[in-house]
Design a protein around this nucleic acid. Structure first.
Ligand code: FES
Ligand code: FES
Lengths: 146, 146
DNA sequence: TACTATCTCTATAAGATTAGTAGAGTATAC
DNA sequence: GTATACTCTACTAATCTTATAGAGATAGTA
């Protein structure tokens, strides 16, 4: 289990779109600029997210991307798993593993299962509405303090 | 954070050596055979573990590998970190990351920190004496039931 | 001493993954 | 019809993973 830059970019894009959910679309250009992501790379990520049913887009002059589902229905884990694959930390927990002679006797197996659960418990319990709220709060604090 | 085959092999080797701790050395050949690991690959892993101060070896006819420290002083996390590197799930938690403009405002950061802690809490709380005991117990149950 | 078992060290390599880059094509608003 | 923005496919350099190959060093023993 590793969050690649691709996954990182996807999360940031979805968060940025969450902040605009229901109000407006966001262009790849703006997303890339705001989050400091190579634009051509972000293109690919967004297309993947679109194919995954997370976002949709409109072409043309006032085009851009927008979330399909409301932010509170998208969990961090959804994006991570979709972009970077299973969160299991070791091959033996995934399908088709034949490394351990008898996985039922393997002393390590339950440890990796615990690790998987622990990770799931975190990333499947935070949705993008919560994240967006946190960001808004920080913005507000910043505004007040100026 | 991903446990590679190399890490997997290292853990299995250390567990096998834990079972023999204080009584005898184990040859690469036997280790490789028991755990079904390519022998030339295991050689490299054991050399690395030796350089890391986890195991030591004796050459010659009655040679082989043995643990340097007692099993209860070696945690799974020690081996994992040494062989597969930091357990952090994303680059931004490691040194020299410059991706996020301001990591203190990044909404994701604390999540990855939580994930790191959760992983550490598991792999740094199991030592090889405990693992070896579990293996011995399973062996016993097996023997009784025959 | 010669032999053999065992560890030691360095080099090489195929395949996969990662993190991009490039460029031509399609749709839409104005 | 043109500017703007998304779409799609291909390519690439660098790195990592998972090994394999082979010569060398050391220790016990007949
Ligand atoms: S079954 Fe996962 S390491 Fe053995
Ligand atoms: S600081 Fe880690 S993703 Fe922003």
């Amino acid at each position: 289990m590793r969050i690649t830059y691709k996954g990182d970019y996807a999360l940031k894009a979805v968060l940025a779109l969450s902040l605009k959910y229901g109000s407006s679309v966001v262009t790849i250009h703006d997303l890339a600029k705001d989050a400091d992501i190579p634009i051509k790379f972000l293109e690919q990520v967004l297309l993947e997210l679109k194919r995954g049913g997370f976002v949709d887009s409109r072409r043309g002059k006032i085009g851009g991307y927008f979330l399909v589902k409301p932010p509170h229905k998208i969990k961090i884990g959804d994006i991570v798993r979709f972009i970077d694959g299973p969160i299991e930390p070791i091959a033996c927990l995934e399908k088709g593993y034949t490394g351990c002679r008898d996985i039922y006797k393997c002393a390590f197996r339950h440890i990796w299962q615990d690790v998987s659960s622990a990770i799931s418990n975190i990333i499947d319990n935070v949705n993008f509405q919560e994240l967006a709220a946190q960001v808004n709060l920080k913005q507000q604090v910043l505004t007040y303090s100026i």
